[in-house]
């Protein structure tokens, strides 16, 4: 079996690419499509740096075969801002200094957005558990959790 022709949607855009049958979605995004915003920290599902959504569900792109995305919708960090406008999560991460080195940031943002899409008003504990699949070694998580809670409030329209 040679390379597989895959038709998918990435960040809402119809996309076609060729991949090796063993190739992961992570590798296809980075190497075939030059979407390097999705990061690799482990390739074994342990760090969350490679987080993307597949039909709206949060997944590790290192644990999805590229071939599996045929006919499905993939969402990556590159699709998060709307043109010139950052998503409130992105803005709050900046305001709260929720990144130091920033390599975990795309994964956290994608995961946090998946959480807020399904749970608009999470508690601190819910945020911590929902983001437990994303490792950050720089921040101790404090500012990340605050940024997510603050973004959630803004998205709900809470004024404080």
């Amino acid at each position: 079996m040679g390379r597989i022709h895959v038709r998918t949607r990435i960040n809402g855009e119809a996309t076609e690419f060729l991949c090796d049958p063993r190739q992961t979605l992570l590798d296809a995004l980075r190497d075939e499509l030059q979407l390097t915003g999705t990061k690799e920290g482990c390739t074994t599902g342990d760090c969350g740096a490679c987080s993307v959504t597949l039909d709206g569900l949060l997944v590790c792109s290192c644990l999805v075969l590229a071939a599996e995305t045929e006919g499905h919708d993939v969402g990556t960090i590159e699709g998060m801002a709307q043109g010139e406008t950052l998503h409130p999560l992105q803005q709050k991460f900046l305001e709260h200094a929720a990144l130091q080195c920033g390599v975990c940031t795309p994964g956290f943002l994608v995961a946090a957005k998946a959480l807020l899409d399904r749970e608009p008003d999470p508690s601190e504990k819910q945020v911590r558990y929902a983001l437990a699949g994303n490792l950050c070694r720089c921040t101790g998580y404090d500012k990340i959790i605050r940024a997510v809670l603050d973004a959630a409030a803004e998205l709900r329209g809470d004024t404080r």
């Binding site: 599902g45 597949l54 569900l57 949060l58 590790c60 995961a111 983001l131 437990a132 699949g133 994303n134």
Partner: peptide, 9 residues
């Protein structure tokens, strides 16, 4: 089982 990411699969 695993994280939210793992649970997505």
């Amino acid at each position: 089982i695993g994280s939210d990411q793992i649970q997505g699969r």
